[in-house]
Nucleic acid binder design. Structure first.
Length: 883
RNA sequence: GGGAGCAUAGCUCAGUUGGUUCAGAGCGUCUGCCUUACAAGCAGAGGGUCGGGGGUUCGACUCCCUCUGCUCCCACCA
């Protein structure tokens, strides 16, 4: 069968993925081997594959396939995250399109829709990962809202509640007065908005609630909130206002007396330097209020209208009230001036309503003890962050960790297991039945109907932080005294985690906390941070920009192997990667190169009677040593997570060493057969190369591994042992290197002089030269004979060049332009003399000789003598030329 | 405003305790080749005072300070 000159991934990739699945190669069960475990960063259950996933999962797959080939029991757990906010908003949008509003549904009805949506759209992303070649153990696929995983979450809540780590508290949330819901920080968009800066007079009180004639000016953009003011704040260092210390001022219009307080939060050079503190309606003011123990007075209702606590303008919308109150202030003589002012205002992403900061009751998990342990896990080096710079970020987070707000005003997720009694008190229990029992202990005779479960669900991260534990043993997290099951004991801790630095705190740190708490052992050893995938000009990939290619289209066009290689080419750990389709083309080209190397080898006819040629014998010996040295380098790169370096080492080894040098050396003349020894060695090398390629490009390596030799059904390259480094004959590698230099030199002369590769030349060499390499030079440079001499006959016309300390002379009659040669040699001479001078400068420096290590000084001496011999040689050539 | 990081060839990046000819790789560019494995290829070549300035050192791309420019995270200015 004639093989095409282009590799066609579409005809092989699906075939081999099906083959791997059919033989259950990805599945892992505990055994006596060392485990190697990765849990997938669970993508959103209703998400679809984007370039970020491709990068992350390619790296994961490279690591897992490498470990598998290193003989470990490799297990990669796939799964999805319920992603409460993202999924719920998708379902809400879908219902809205059908004319159904969430408010019209009961919780149960809504959840039914949500589950239907999940069943229909969920897990698409996992099937897309198969296209990429991801070798996940699909039998172990998990979902963060699987019944057992959900129960683990509930149990964890109960556990921490009973431990005293969970409490209810008040927190400022982003309230959407139109959507009538709290929205997350991520759903708030800040837009510069034109507004007014109102400068108001607050009169100083005489101590009995009456105004004196003294006043201060307070500037605000929100005069409608003055009724909720709890204080006026100045910077303690502000001398302009020292006279105010300890005094009280009166809120305009309502004449309420409030204190002057001091806090360095206030910027002296912003506004008037006096800040009205309104704890209920501004986050910063709330925090100041906490420090100074101020009263919190909430005067705005859920719809954004003033309530009765405002005393005036009750029922007015906040923006209407703002205009009216400005007028009232002016009439009362309290408005000094208004200025135009532009400031960033938060808007709801979904309803475009201006966000109102609002206090609400939330559940919190104390972070102090957990964060301390998690910090220690990294500081001690038990967890390695790659690259290391993220240790700083991590430490910073852990040292300033705020308590974790774990409640969300949503329905999609694990509902908080707190059950309220009619008297307003509550019990926390892992199930309604258990809750009832506890409630009855508090209040005899109470029935299930009288219990009311908290409406909120838990933050999605409150389930994902258990992921490395719960995917193996969902019993474990809630029951720290529970003995881990077989899977958890075997696979935990996992080895490597691959994720983005943006969730270092949300996810990574919290998994460490859960691991420390429940397992007394970190959940992973190494965390590899990938960068963000950006487009060619550095913009984030986004739907609206339309600069995000569909990975499936790319796979269709170039093949998964090419896409994988293209993504890895430019991805050093922790750096953003600038994606460009040309990288994937490079991946495709490499596949094609491998394919054509295979075509060449496959096409050879073997003649068992043929003797191995000298050049082939040298080639095989050399390549064997080269293989050993490259394998050592590649393994070293892998062990340090230098994945793109490992990849590049393999790439160059295949392309340059194997194809450009080795194959060219052993290639028989067209139509001639090859000897058996060389053929067998070559096929063996090719197999080793395929194994080195496999973790990065699984499909083409499996395809050719089967094509290069007859294999039985059930055989796979996946479980072949990754090549191990052996002894390296450094002298041989160096000698070969030198020979390559000579070959390149001769080719260069051919190019310059316009000599066809078909015309053979002869060479004379002077200097240290390993003659065993002569056949190599002869074959690759098309040289008929090489003479190793002590000096060059000065009567002959020709061109010479230096390769290391070796002088190579190519006799050429009639083709030499002597003046050009002289110019070239003189330029080289000038360079070498300068070089020699600087080396001698170093060596004559007593301090250098005294301080520098022996080896460095020796190296300099070698440079000196090498340079001297080169200069000598060039001078001789010049003499000859100038005759 | 607080914190972190980056700046090396046209582009994307290496440069691993400061010392081998250390100024590198890949891609791109240029030149010559349709040489029966591969033009998605082969053979060659050019290209950077390592952002500016200062310091430490026998020696600095590498360590310290400073300036400039950029990026990210957090808090967002009443």
């Amino acid at each position: 069968m004639e093989l095409q000159s282009k590799y066609d991934p579409s005809s092989t990739e699906d075939k081999w993925y099906a083959y791997w699945l059919e033989h259950n190669f990805f599945h892992s069960e505990p055994d006596e081997r060392e485990p190697y475990t990765i849990v997938i960063p669970p993508p959103n259950v209703t998400g679809i594959l984007h370039m970020g996933h491709v990068l992350n999962n390619t790296i994961n797959d490279v690591l897992i396939r490498k470990a598998r080939m290193d003989g470990k029991n490799a297990c990669w757990i796939p799964g999805t995250d319920h992603a409460s906010i993202a999924t719920e908003s998708k379902v809400v949008a879908k219902l809205k399109a059908e004319g159904i509003s969430k408010e019209d549904l009961t919780r149960e009805e809504f959840l039914k829709h949500a589950w239907e949506w999940k069943e229909k759209h969920g897990g698409i992303i996992l099937s897309q990962l198969r296209k990429l070649g991801a070798s996940c153990d699909w039998d172990r696929t998990k979902f963060t809202m699987d019944p057992d995983l959900s129960q683990a979450v509930i149990n964890t809540f109960v556990y921490f509640y009973e431990k005293g780590y969970i409490y209810q508290g008040v927190r400022m949330v982003n309230w959407d007065p139109v959507g009538l819901t709290a929205v997350s920080d991520e759903e708030v968009v800040h837009k510069d908005t034109a507004s007014k800066f109102y400068h108001m007079r607050y009169f100083v009180s005489d101590g009995k609630g009456n105004p004196t004639d003294k006043y201060i000016v307070v500037a605000t953009t929100r005069p409608e909130t003055i009724m909720a003011d709890a204080a006026v704040c100045i910077n303690p260092a502000d001398e302009r206002y020292h006279w105010l210390k300890g005094k009280k001022v009166l809120i305009p219009l309502i004449n309420k007396e409030i204190p002057i307080i001091e806090d360095s939060y206030v910027e002296m050079d912003f506004g008037t330097g006096c800040l009205k503190v309104t704890p209920a309606h501004d986050v910063n003011d709330y925090n100041i209020g906490l420090r100074h123990n101020l009263q919190v007075l909430d005067i705005i209702d859920d719809h954004g209208c003033l309530n009765e606590k405002a005393q005036i303008l009750i029922g007015e919308d906040r923006f209407v009230a703002r205009k009216k109150i400005a007028k009232m202030l002016e009439e009362a003589g309290n408005l000094e001036k208004t200025e135009d002012y532009t400031s960033p205002i938060g808007y709801s992403e979904r309803t475009d309503a201006v966000i109102e900061p609002k206090l609400s009751k939330q559940w919190f998990l104390k972070m102090d003890v957990l964060a301390k342990a998690a910090l220690e896990s990294v500081e001690s080096g038990r967890i390695r962050l790659i690259p290391e710079k993220y240790r700083n970020t991590y430490r910073h987070w852990m040292e300033t960790a705020h308590d974790w707000c774990i409640s969300r005003q949503l329905w999609w997720g694990q509902r908080i297991p707190a059950y309220y009694l009619p008297d307003g008190s509550f019990v926390v229990a892992p199930s309604p039945e258990a809750a009832l029992q506890k409630a009855q202990e508090k209040c005899a005779g109470i029935t299930m109907d009288q219990l009311h479960q908290d409406e909120d669900v838990l933050d999605t991260w409150f389930s994902s932080w258990l992921w490395p534990i719960s995917v193996f043993d969902a019993e474990m997290p809630g029951h720290p005294d529970h003995k881990p099951n077989r899977d958890l004991s075997y696979y935990y801790p996992t080895n490597d985690l691959v994720t983005g630095p943006d969730i270092i705190f949300f996810w990574v740190a919290r998994m460490v906390m859960a691991g420390d708490e429940f397992m007394k052992e970190e959940p992973f050893r190494n965390v590899y941070f990938t960068g963000i995938v950006r487009d060619k000009i550095g913009r984030k990939m986004s739907k609206t920009l339309g600069n995000s290619p569909d990975p499936l289209v790319l796979i269709e066009k170039y093949g998964a192997d090419a896409v994988r290689l293209g993504m890895l080419l430019c991805s050093s750990a922790g750096n953003d990667i600038l994606y460009d389709e040309s990288q994937i083309e490079q991946g495709r080209n490499f596949c094609n190169k491998i394919w054509n190397a295979f075509r060449l080898v496959k096409g050879w006819a073997v003649d068992e009677t043929l003797e191995q040629s000298e050049s082939s014998a040298v080639a095989v010996d050399w390549f064997n040593n080269k293989l050993n040295s490259v394998v050592a380098v590649v393994n070293d790169h892998f062990s340090k997570f230098r994945i793109s370096d490992a990849l590049m080492a393999v790439y160059k080894f295949f392309w340059d060493d194997f194809c450009a040098w080795y194959l060219e050396l052993v290639k028989p003349a067209y139509g001639s057969p090859i000897d058996a020894a060389t053929y067998n060695a070559t096929v063996g090398f090719f197999e080793q190369l395929l194994k080195m390629v496999h973790p990065i490009m699984p499909f083409i390596s499996e395809e050719l591994w089967h094509a290069v030799r007859d294999r039985k059904d059930g055989e796979t390259i996946m479980f072949e042992r990754f090549p191990q480094a052996g002894e390296v004959n450094e002298a041989l590698l160096q000698a070969f290197e030198q020979a390559c230099g000579v070959v390149a030199g001769v080719r260069n002369i051919r190019q310059q002089k316009g000599i066809s590769p078909k015309d053979s030349l002869s060479l004379k060499v002077v200097g240290d030269y390993d003659q065993t390499l002569s056949p190599v030079i002869a074959k690759l440079a098309n040289v008929s004979n090489i003479e190793h001499l002590t000096s060059i006959d000065d009567s002959e016309a020709g061109v010479s060049f230096m390769s290391g300390t070796l002088k190579v002379f190519v006799p050429l009659s009639g083709l030499v332009d002597e003046s050009e040669e002289i110019k070239k040699l003189e330029a080289e001479l000038t360079y070498l003399e300068g070089f020699l001078k600087s080396v001698r400068g170093k060596l004559s420096n007593e301090k250098f000789v005294a301080h520098a290590p022996e080896a460095v000084v020796a190296a300099e001496r070698k440079k000196e003598s090498d340079a001297m011999s080169k200069i000598e040689s060039i001078k001789k050539s010049l003499e000859i030329l100038k005759k």
